[in-house]
C-alpha cells in the first residue's frame, strides 16, 4: 500500500520516440526523441512548474502522464501504481486530470455545464441522482460559479468563467494531480489574476498537486514550489522555485530568464541567438551547445551531459556549471 512518503507521481527514465519518414513515401527512417530520459517526482500538494520553448517535449511529457501517449521506455507511477501496467483508464482518471489552455475549444459547445460535469461522475459509477446533484453544486461553488449557471452553455460565459468550468470538470472526480497546460495564457490579462488565485486556493484547500506547463516565467515563479526546465526532450535543470529564479545554474535557464522584458529596465537582452535545433538531428554532447554563450569544445563531446548537483534538490546538466558559478 502507498504510504505518506510515496510521491503521488513518479516519472522514471521516461522516453517517447516517434518514428519519422520511411513507410509509403520512402526516405530514411529517423527517430524524433520528443522526450528522452526524463525523471520527475511530484509530492502531494506540490506545484511543479515545467518550463521550456516549443518543441522541448513538455506537452508530450504531459500527455504521457495522463496516459494519452504510450512511452517508448521508462515508467510512470501514479500513487505508486504503474500507469502502463494497469490498463485501467478509469483508475488513472480518478488520480490525474487536466486543465487545457484554451477554454473556448476544450468545452463541448452543445453540452450544458451540468452535463459536462455530470458525465465523468456517471462514467465512474455514481448513479444516485441526489449525490450527482450535490457534487455538481459543490464543485461549481468551489470554482466560484453559481448553481443556476449549470443550465447554461459554454458560449454564454466569458473566457475566465469558461476556464473555471474547465477547472471544475478536472476536479469533479476529486483527482490528486492536475496537469495545467498554459492555464492562463489564452485569457485576457485583467482576468489572469482571478484564475491564478483560484488555482492556488484550490491547491491549498484540496491538497492538489499540479504539473504546470507555462512559458510565462512570472506565472511560474509565482505559482511553483519546484521548477523543471526542459530543452530538446530532457530536463536540463531542476530545483526549488528559489533555486531556479535566484541562482539559475544552466546557461539555458539564465538565458530564458534574461529574455523576459523587464519593465523597469530599457530594452530586452537576447543572451542567446539562433533557434532550437531540429530535434531529428540533435547536437552531440550538450544539446544546447550551439546556442550557448558559455560553450567550450568540451561541451560538444558525447555522451549526453549528466546532472551536476548544485545543492539539495538543485541540479543542472552542464559540464561547466560549477566553474561558471565561481
Amino acid at each position: 500500500m502507498p504510504d505518506a512518503t510515496t510521491p503521488i507521481l513518479a516519472v522514471e527514465d521516461l522516453a517517447v520516440h516517434f518514428p519519422m519518414g520511411g513507410g509509403l513515401f520512402g526516405g530514411a527512417r529517423r527517430t524524433l526523441k520528443a522526450v528522452d530520459g526524463v525523471d520527475l517526482v511530484l509530492e502531494p500538494g506540490e506545484c511543479l512548474g515545467l518550463v521550456g520553448e516549443s518543441g522541448c517535449g513538455k506537452s508530450t511529457l504531459a500527455l504521457s502522464i495522463l496516459g494519452l501517449q504510450a512511452p517508448t521506455r521508462g515508467r510512470i507511477l501514479l500513487d505508486g501504481q504503474d500507469v502502463a501496467a494497469s490498463h485501467d483508464r478509469r483508475a488513472r482518471a480518478r488520480i490525474v486530470q487536466m486543465v487545457f489552455q484554451d477554454p473556448y475549444s476544450s468545452l463541448n459547445p452543445r453540452q450544458t455545464v451540468r452535463r459536462t460535469l455530470e458525465e465523468p461522475l456517471r462514467l465512474h459509477g455514481t448513479t444516485d441522482k441526489a449525490e450527482i446533484e450535490s457534487r455538481v453544486a459543490a464543485i461549481l461553488a468551489r470554482v466560484g460559479l453559481r448553481p443556476d449557471q449549470a443550465e447554461r452553455y459554454p458560449h454564454e460565459f466569458s473566457g475566465g468563467q469558461r476556464q473555471r468550468i474547465g477547472i471544475a470538470r478536472a476536479l469533479v472526480l476529486e483527482p490528486r494531480v492536475v496537469v495545467l497546460d498554459e492555464p492562463v495564457s489564452a485569457l485576457d490579462v485583467s482576468i489572469r489574476a482571478q484564475i491564478i488565485n483560484l488555482l492556488l486556493d484550490l491547491k491549498d484547500q484540496l491538497g492538489l498537486a499540479y504539473v504546470m506547463i507555462s512559458h510565462d516565467l512570472g506565472v511560474v515563479e509565482h505559482m511553483s514550489d519546484r521548477v523543471a526546465v526542459m530543452y530538446l526532450g530532457r530536463i536540463v535543470e531542476t530545483g526549488t522555485w528559489r533555486d531556479i529564479f535566484a541562482a539559475p545554474g544552466h546557461p539555458y535557464t539564465k538565458a530564458l530568464i534574461a529574455a523576459i522584458p523587464d519593465p523597469f529596465r530599457d530594452g530586452v537582452h537576447a543572451r542567446i541567438t539562433g533557434e532550437v535545433p531540429n530535434p531529428l538531428d540533435p547536437p552531440t554532447g550538450c544539446a544546447f551547445h550551439p546556442r550557448c554563450p558559455d560553450a567550450l569544445p568540451l561541451c560538444r563531446e558525447p555522451p549526453a551531459i549528466a546532472f551536476e548537483p548544485l545543492g539539495t534538490g538543485h541540479a543542472a546538466r552542464c559540464r561547466r556549471v560549477h566553474e561558471l558559478a565561481a
Partner: peptide, 28 residues
C-alpha cells in the same frame, strides 16, 4: 493600476514573497 497590481511580475516573489494577486473584477 489594477493591471500592474494583477501581474505576477518576474522577480516579485523573490523580492517580497508570494502575495495574493490583486484581481480586477468583471470582464472587458
Amino acid at each position: 493600476a489594477g493591471l500592474v497590481a494583477s501581474l505576477p511580475l518576474l522577480g516579485a516573489r523573490l523580492a517580497g514573497g508570494r502575495n495574493r494577486l490583486r484581481e480586477i473584477t468583471g470582464v472587458v
